[in-house]
Design a binder for these strands. Structure first.
Lengths: 152, 152
DNA sequence: TGGGAAGATTTGGGATATCATGGGCAAATA
DNA sequence: TATTTGCCCATGATATCCCAAATCTTCCCA
């Protein structure tokens, strides 16, 4: 599986479009028959936009199918998962337009940072991205970062 | 399967018509031979209108077929499902006219929010929609339905 | 090792199609 | 005849498509 790695900075143009960093594009080609290639949603606990390749998003949603359609649980989860999600495709140049509500959630103005997180990536306001990375690094360290197989 | 994703805001005009958001229209093309493409019903426990594509609604009704037609259970279920349901079609522009009773149930005035929930969507009064989303998120979280990959 | 050159990539902007919305007209209703 | 309902067209706003300029990378060769 292709992965999203690294950090890239791009600009929003006057029309609200932004290029997806070229290294990320490979992973988001729409499956034949599918309309969208990417699903964007506001992160639950962070001030950023989460970008899911369509396949990963569908996998994310599978737990739903096991629930009774009329249950409160199903309704809550569906609302949480779907109501804020926006499927979209890139234009021929590999650009997307970010829905207004997501731009607001992430506090974006004219520059955005794409942060690779393996199977998904995030879109951040630049300063927030810096803070976030410093914080993540710090927390990982204090927790005694140990990744199986990775030796210092 | 096409899914209803995202949230869209549209207006009711003087005649009580409202456009179905374009992204939702694809999923409600009537099957050839079918009259209606969409079934509306008041939500059981929420102050909103539920919109079912005809196919999904039929699937919803399948449990009925396993019940004895003369049983109380059948009657109750059938009444719940069908009595308040309105089948309707969109006009050439993709608009529908909301039945009065549903407008009342959802407390709509001149603006309505379409909330995608995967296989169905809901129609809300804007402020109520906001409250609902916050509540759903909160309840999903407290129930411990953490979404894989979506946190930290 | 440095300078170009060729190819990608990002960014800009104009033309075009789509969409939301408003209003008119005619058939249906009462 | 007054009122409503459904059907159709008109319009402005918006988003999408397409072409092209400006940057940035990479690679090659002197």
């Amino acid at each position: 599986m292709t992965q999203f790695l690294g950090t890239h900075v791009n600009k929003l143009d006057a029309k609200g479009r932004i290029s997806i960093p070229a290294p990320f594009r490979a992973s988001l080609r729409a499956a034949p028959g599918e309309a969208a290639s990417l699903v964007l949603r506001p992160s639950h606990n962070l001030q950023c936009i989460e970008a899911w390749p369509i396949a990963a998003f569908q996998a994310l949603a599978t737990p739903l199918e096991r629930l009774d359609v009329f249950s409160e649980e199903h309704d809550d989860l569906a609302a949480t998962l779907y109501a804020d999600a926006y499927p979209l495709e890139a234009d021929k140049e590999g650009r997307i337009v970010l829905p207004e509500s997501l731009v607001a959630h992430a506090g974006l103005s004219d520059t955005a940072v794409f942060m690779g997180l393996g199977r998904i990536f995030q879109i951040w306001e630049p300063a927030a991205a810096d803070r976030r990375r410093a914080e993540a690094r710090e927390r990982a360290r204090s927790r005694g970062l140990t990744i199986a197989g990775a030796s210092a």
